[in-house]
């Protein structure tokens, strides 16, 4: 099979890009010590999902763009999540004087 440079952007390019973004987000979510960076990684993962939704909406569902409506709902939920998450983070910081994820281990057995 001969490799040719495509003249239009294929759907798979968007899916691969979203996969890279999602995996970066997962890695950051697991490995971050700073609680703010964990929230940023969650935002990266949500954006990856949104890219997938928008790509499918454009390539496979061009007339009823349901993917775009879903992406709007995802953006709404992400905004709510960021607000509540950062409020919880501030409350945690006030009680424990740290943002190190390794020290939020009160419930660990």
């Amino acid at each position: 099979m001969e490799f040719t440079i495509p003249t239009t952007i294929p759907l798979q390019a968007y899916l691969a890009l979203a996969a890279v973004l999602f995996c970066t987000g997962v890695w950051g979510l697991i490995n971050s010590r700073n609680a703010v960076r964990v929230l940023m990684s969650i935002e990266l993962m949500l954006n990856a999902v949104n890219i997938n939704l928008m790509a499918f909406s454009n390539y496979l569902d061009g007339q009823l763009i349901r993917g775009q409506v879903f992406a709007i709902f995802v953006i709404t939920v992400a905004a709510a999540e960021a607000a509540v998450g950062l409020a919880i983070l501030l409350s945690l910081y006030r009680n424990r004087e740290t943002v190190d994820m390794e020290r939020f281990n009160l419930l660990r057995w």
């Binding site: 609680a35 703010v36 929230l39 940023m40 935002e43 992400a78 905004a79 960021a82 607000a83 950062l86 983070l89 501030l90 910081y93 943002v99």
Partner: peptide, 12 residues
């Protein structure tokens, strides 16, 4: 969201 994150960084 980004401004909120920056505020959180400033506060902690």
């Amino acid at each position: 969201v980004n401004v909120l994150i920056l505020f959180a960084i400033m506060l902690v």
